[in-house]
Design a protein around this nucleic acid. Sequence first.
DNA 1: GTGAAAGCGCTAACAG
DNA 2: CTGTTAGCGCTTTCAC
Lengths: 374, 374
Amino acid sequence: MQVVCSAAIVSANIFSTTSRDDPSPADTEVPELPEPTLKDVAALAGVSPRTVSNVVNGYVHVAAATRAKVEAAIQELDYRPNILARNLASGRSGQIAVVIPYLDTPYFSELLQAIIPRARHRGFNVLIDQTDGDPAHEAELIRRRPRGFAYDGMIFSPLGLAQADLSQRDPDLPLVVLGERSSDGEFDHVGIDDVAAARDAVDHLISLGHRRIAAIGDQPYRTGEAAQRRTAGYRQAHEHAGLPVDDSLVIVTPRFNRVDGAEAMGHLLDREDPPTAVFAYSDLVALGAIRTILQRGLRVPEDVAVIGYDDIEDGRYNTPTVSTIAPDKAGIAAAAVDRLLERIDSGNDLPGKEIVCPYRLVPRESTVGPVTPD
Amino acid sequence: MQVVCSAAIVSANIFSTTSRDDPSPADTEVPELPEPTLKDVAALAGVSPRTVSNVVNGYVHVAAATRAKVEAAIQELDYRPNILARNLASGRSGQIAVVIPYLDTPYFSELLQAIIPRARHRGFNVLIDQTDGDPAHEAELIRRRPRGFAYDGMIFSPLGLAQADLSQRDPDLPLVVLGERSSDGEFDHVGIDDVAAARDAVDHLISLGHRRIAAIGDQPYRTGEAAQRRTAGYRQAHEHAGLPVDDSLVIVTPRFNRVDGAEAMGHLLDREDPPTAVFAYSDLVALGAIRTILQRGLRVPEDVAVIGYDDIEDGRYNTPTVSTIAPDKAGIAAAAVDRLLERIDSGNDLPGKEIVCPYRLVPRESTVGPVTPD
DNA sequence: GTGAAAGCGCTAACAG
DNA sequence: CTGTTAGCGCTTTCAC
């Protein structure tokens, strides 16, 4: 419950802009010397522009003496190639777009943290585009390159779009889609085996003795494919253990965030026969659910055990720490970047490929309780 | 305490790459028609390239009839300008860099979420660079434009660099620095009044009756300017209330994260005379501190009250919710972007400007306790 | 208000 | 292995 700040306590500065005009003492109009060009370097080194280009781009077949001369000239002029010119000439921007629903959702920001260095190491810069899961925005992004943005390929994490909608894409856009493939497609997919992971999560709860296990996060509509795979795993675990599935324990939520988790948990606890354990489809949902459980004066995991999905940092520092399915984010990032660059290099002339990355089940306090240090 | 997954529970897929070769039935070698150019449009519309350019760029002085002809031609050819060519010709990339220490730190990701749409609305794309607070990396970024990256200006949130180090920058780089100015500089600053905000936070604790108030997050070395401003505010609040400052209650931490908060709080609670309230220099520090307090079986705020800084989403959903200083992130983002674009447009020929944005004190459960709904 | 033409600085055939 | 040369597709002075 948030207290809206009352006038007495609030201290709000007026948006003031104080311009201290730093009367720059050395206001000498510098001759504005132009940046040296490749041609300048060539002239100084006494070689052709072509050779300078070769040196700059690290071509192998350059005589050592020539290379030395050119490098000396580059040093002397403090030459740096003009990327804008290179881009035009080569027809490449050296940038890839990463399209995700939410930048501030920990799972995505953690994934980004892995993608960016990987791409950069390969000489590519990353453009980030946040869609808010808006289907129109997502569709627009893959249908044609939006005006004003330059990128050579895209890593795309769809939320508002179903897999089927992806067929409407610009066929010339090198594309790698995050998340498991749930229908046929002609591009690359990178993800973990959601069904197996969900099954493992629920198996874990069952192995702890739980028999009434709720699932929070189902999305039984066409864009809810990722959620549906988790639900499938939930059912498989029950089947495998010979337990019946109580469909009323499978809770639908519009999103995978804290609020949804908190509300859904509230409804579950209002029942006459609340579950003893919960499989949340994301760690944020799990955190929301845990908050509700604690607010009701119940304990986690003694009264209700909770397991999440994603292994975000928040879950590792929560009280209690949150058990979870931990996808190999670094592996996913590496696979996605590498495949996309491969695709770009090939002129986008590659068959669709399915890349399945590892995951781990990580039991923490929210299912097994506090661990006493040895 | 995290249980490292034991072999029995872990389910780790081998990194398998199953290539389903989608034998694309329609493997018809498309004639690979080249993208239409501005020249093509001009030819079709019967005008000069110049005129097409004028239309595309929304120039005012184009006869209505001409414009209509050109637009029809654009439609017909499905023409989109080649950004790479435009960039070279105009000497602009249409991109700005935003350099922050950590992408997954909620404060920065929330700020980014505000910066990106603002920049995009103005026709600029945002490149994100994460420095991990590495001084060498930060220095390199402002010293000269790194090879391979194209941007017209930079919004920079320094962490490893002191304000004084910023003078070493490339004077031709349009630069807006986030955070309050603490020494003289010749570029723009955008931030809130940290000293006043910190003072307000501590005033709030004092007004609740607290007399022994700890501060967690001081950084008494040259790059810790932001922390030092908070400490100054902490002292001012004490002075103002006629309270003595116990220097041993001002805790130094290397960073502003959960772990540091948790550890510092541990030390404070180990004392014979623990504080009854804590001013944490970030919400993450506050969250870490709260976790430690709860783990010791103490209550927040009854035994120890905690107030943070930044107003991140995690604090709004924590148990208890975290009182905080809420900077106007949207205002900061807007001011930074607008000023940077102004600077770019002016050819970087503008005096340094100090922009101070508003903030609010937001009391929540961690200081005033649960609020009973009416 | 519109046309003509000269680059922007680099890459990449094509020679040699 | 290196020089020559023609663009990449757009913007932008300069005239008319």
